[in-house]
Design a protein around this nucleic acid. Structure first.
Length: 488
RNA sequence: CGGGGCGUAGCGCAGUCCGGUUAGCGCACCUGUUUUGGGAACAGGGGGUCGCAGGUUCGAAUCCUGCCGCCCCGACCA
């Protein structure tokens, strides 16, 4: 196991790209930096989306949809916000093409220049807050708890499937509140939902915390984050929830009347997770055989492979099992392809990450058993046909649980507590992983450490223990440890 | 935008240095037969403007010039 991961770390990037390709999750597209999400990849995202959507709705949120285009002037109304996104905006300048006067192809019609350029949303705060101004008049209109499922575009210099693409799918929640306390509590509620989703569904342990000022969302007063640790020892920011204070309300003049008939600016939050989570899922669980998908998110949880050539008897047993598994709410597929050999199929389903595989052949039927193979441990066993459905159900739960424990163990083994800067640098470079260390709280020191080691402060942990110490670089006093790591 | 590398069949590559039959190999694909419990074997078959444009030459995937595209490493970032 350790050896495999070491080997993997040598060219982690290639390993990751291989899995994306071989498991059929995504392809490069004709447009640089954008990907085509294939059915197998999209199905994972859909499952994530369904669960998150349910969790948002259970906590009182509703869905809506706002335009893809943002007038350029909107973006610049909040100073920090525009500064944060200006460098990665795609801009629409014209609305018409015309035949090339030279006769070859089409060109942009110079007469069709837009009076005001439109930015393709890198995030929707501005256009949404411009709308909220019209929607909010009274404290009775609050809170406004809206989420949208959408695509956004950020013109990144370097991209990687799922982890960073020029266009990506996400959800973005944008809420408005009467009081500061209520807005902060909303941001924390979502932070909690993200953490629960990551751990309970993705089986991906996360550290909850808040960002330092320099890592905060552009325009936020406070950014809450969940940070996951990948198998190459780098951290992945998996979801953020922002308390925006009154910054956007002031920028877009969104006020409400209190019950005392006083005019006040509203308080805001925004929060989002994206298709990056699919990348996180891949990098958390997969091994050298390919993708490993936690059962709760697996599009196909159980695949039944008839062996070697499906006789009527084998097929009817397979169908009976499939039927009963479906009744238990399990997503099951029977492989009816009689052209490929079993060995080929086994390898292929492993590559695609299907959690449980049932093999049924004449040999098994004679003994009234089926072969049950689990993806997480590569274990195989013969299980009595009678009661197989319950066995599979509890096995799926066990796999979900085991994947989380495995990831948690990895994280524990790759977490260090360090007080000395030389040791810090050594651990960040050689071993990787999380390092808890004291920090003097200044942006200068944070930036110096980044320059010297490429490690950044991933977060100030929410459950940070009070512990007086000294900054490992400057020696200035600190009251608790923060979480450092190299990050994606 | 800096530093490396690469463009030859759907995918992965050899051939390029040192120009010379009809451009080759593996996987995938199609047909047939035998197979089928961990990536089947054999036989036959289809598929190529060798990234693009010029040039040198009797002759260019190969040499020269220009251009385009992609990948990796950094800076930027969810």
């Amino acid at each position: 196991m350790a050896k495999e991961i070491t080997a993997r770390a040598v060219n982690y990037s290639q390993w990751y790209l291989d899995i994306v390709r071989k498991a059929g999750l995504a392809d490069n597209s004709a447009v640089r930096g954008c990907m085509v999400i294939k059915p197998a990849g999209y199905a994972i995202w859909e499952n994530m989306r369904d669960q998150l959507d349910r969790m948002f709705k259970e906590s009182g949120h509703v869905n809506a949809y706002f335009p893809l285009f943002i007038p350029k002037s909107f973006l610049s109304k909040e100073a920090d916000h525009v500064e944060g996104f200006a460098k990665e905006c795609a801009v629409v300048t014209h609305h018409r093409l015309m035949n090339n006067p030279d006769g070859k192809g089409v060109v942009v019609d110079p007469d069709a220049r837009l009076e005001e350029e439109l930015v393709i949303r890198p995030t929707s705060e501005t256009i949404i807050w411009n709308t909220y101004r019209d929607w909010i008049n009274s404290y009775r209109d609050l809170p406004l708890l809206i989420n949208q499922w959408a695509n956004v575009v950020r013109w990144e210099m370097r991209t990687r499937p799922f982890l960073r693409t020029a266009e990506f799918l996400w959800q973005e929640g944008h809420t408005a509140h009467a009081t500061k306390e209520e807005a902060i509590s909303e941001a924390q509620t979502i932070h909690e939902i993200y953490a629960r989703f990551a751990e309970d569904y993705m089986a991906m342990p996360v550290i909850k915390g808040s960002k330092t000022e320099s890592e905060r969302f552009a325009g936020a007063v406070e950014t809450y984050t969940i940070e996951a640790l990948m198998q190459d020892g780098k951290a992945l920011q998996a979801g953020t929830s922002h308390f925006l204070g009154q910054n956007f309300a002031r920028a877009f003049d969104v006020k409400y009347l209190t019950s005392e008939n006083k005019e006040e600016y509203v308080w805001a939050t925004s929060w989002g997770v994206s298709t990056r989570l699919v990348g996180g899922l891949i990098m958390t669980h997969s091994d050298d055989e390919g993708l490993v998908i936690p059962p709760r998110l697996a599009p196909v949880q159980v695949v039944i492979v008839p062996i070697p050539k499906p006789s009527d008897e084998i097929m009817s047993v397979a169908e009976r099992i499939a039927e009963r598994l479906k009744e238990l709410g399990i997503r099951v597929r029977i492989d009816r392809d009689d052209k490929k050999r079993p060995g080929f199929k086994f390898a292929e389903y492993e590559m695609k990450g299907v959690p449980v595989r049932l093999g049924i052949g004449a040999r098994d039927l004679k003994q009234n058993v089926v072969e049950v193979a689990r993806r997480d441990t590569s274990g195989k066993e013969s299980v009595l046909l009678d009661g197989i459905e319950q066995h599979v159900r509890s096995l799926l739960e066990e796999i979900q649980d085991n994947l989380f424990k495995k990831a948690m163990l990895f994280r524990q083994e790759h977490t260090s507590w360090v007080d000395d800067f030389d040791q810090f640098r050594e651990i960040i470079n050689d071993k990787g992983g999380y390092v808890y260390a004291h920090w003097d709280g200044t942006a200068e020191t944070e930036s110096k450490i980044k320059d010297l080691t490429k490690a950044t402060i991933r977060c100030i942990p929410i459950d940070q223990e009070k512990e007086s110490g000294r900054d490992m670089l400057t020696g200035a006093p600190s009251s608790g440890r923060v979480l450092f790591a190299k990050a994606y």
